[in-house]
Computed example of a mutant assay.
Amino acid sequence: MRRLIAVLVLVLLPVPALAQDRTQTLADIRAELNTLTADVNSLKAELTASGASNPNVAGGSALQRMDAIEAALAELTSKTEELQNRINRVVTDGTNRIGDLEFRVTELEGGDVSKLGDTAPLGGQAAATVGAAAATSDPAAQAGSADPAPDLAVNEKADFDRAKGVLGQGDFRAAADQLKTFTETYPGSPLSAEALLLRGDALTQLGDIPNAARSYLESFSGTPNGSFAPDALLRLGQSLGTLGQTPEACVTLKEVGARFPGTEQASQATVSLQGMACQ
């Protein structure tokens, strides 16, 4: 009976309470639902075997209550799977769009598009593996589905600040070179998005618009929901416009308003769209 009470308390908790830990993934939630479902089935078997299926309980017999709980768990599991599928569709569509932008920028630079590798999944590896992680109830497998935020290396912040300082002094060539060295020395750095954005700014000042566009694209695609993503996407669209790629520029600038409505960058994108007479 104590097990029954424990399960009822967990199941009857409001959904927001189950989602209080913001680090919990859909895979974690689905695993918990699977565990609760197994507990409910086990308790039903115990009640039936012990002959305790008919005691009166508020709302019906014990087995009736268990059936209701089991149905609620099944509905929650179904909604979790539906949400997971929607996320996977968004990741696939977003990754394809970024891959198309990478292809177009490489063409503009006169690069070899055949050497382009696979586009990194939108949102990083954790988003790409959410479907596979949710398919198992193994806690160890789920724990490995998302990488923790990396710590800064010993000289990482100092190197970044040095390059940023050079940019502030107006030495755009040196700044572009140092920021490129930074991203190569510290791949996956939490400062990469800003470093790539600043490198794009330095290259823009040097008139190297194709490489500036690529740097903005790398900044955005690495962290499409990060704090520097609106600026990176805006400047990518503006760079494409400068290169004469008006249709691509219009699509990119419209995406700024769609992804980041109400922001200063969205307002600037609207101005740029009007200047290019985008439909």
Results as ranks from 00 to 15, higher is better:
Met1Thr: 11
Ala6Met: 11
Val9Cys: 05
Leu10Asn: 13
Arg22Lys: 15
Leu26Phe: 06
Leu33Lys: 03
Val40Tyr: 05
Ala52Met: 10
Pro55Trp: 08
Ile69Ser: 05
Ala74Ile: 07
Glu75Thr: 12
Glu75Lys: 14
Leu76Cys: 10
Ser78Leu: 15
Thr80Ser: 13
Val91Trp: 09
Thr92Val: 07
Thr95Phe: 04
Thr95Val: 10
Gly99Ala: 09
Arg104Asp: 07
Val105Glu: 04
Thr106Arg: 15
Asp112Val: 01
Asp112Gln: 04
Gly124Arg: 09
Gly131Asn: 13
Pro139Lys: 02
Asp147Thr: 14
Leu152Gly: 01
Asp161Tyr: 03
Asp171Trp: 02
Phe172Met: 08
Ala175Ile: 03
Asp177Met: 11
Lys180Cys: 02
Thr181Ser: 15
Phe182Ala: 05
Glu184Trp: 00
Pro190Asn: 13
Leu191Phe: 15
Ala195Trp: 03
Leu198Lys: 14
Arg199Met: 03
Gly207Ile: 02
Gly207His: 14
Ala213Gln: 02
Glu218Gly: 02
Ser219Cys: 04
Ser219Glu: 03
Ser221Ile: 00
Pro224Thr: 09
Asn225Gly: 15
Ser227Met: 06
Ser227Lys: 13
Ala229Arg: 01
Leu236Thr: 08
Gly241Arg: 06
Thr242Phe: 07
Gln245Cys: 02
Pro247Asn: 10
Cys250Asn: 06
Val251Phe: 12
Thr252Phe: 02
Leu253His: 08
Glu255Phe: 02
Ala258Pro: 06
Arg259Asp: 06
Ala266Ser: 12
Ser267Val: 02
Ala269His: 02
Val271Ile: 09
Gln274Ser: 09
Gln274Glu: 14
Gly275Pro: 06
Gln279Gly: 08
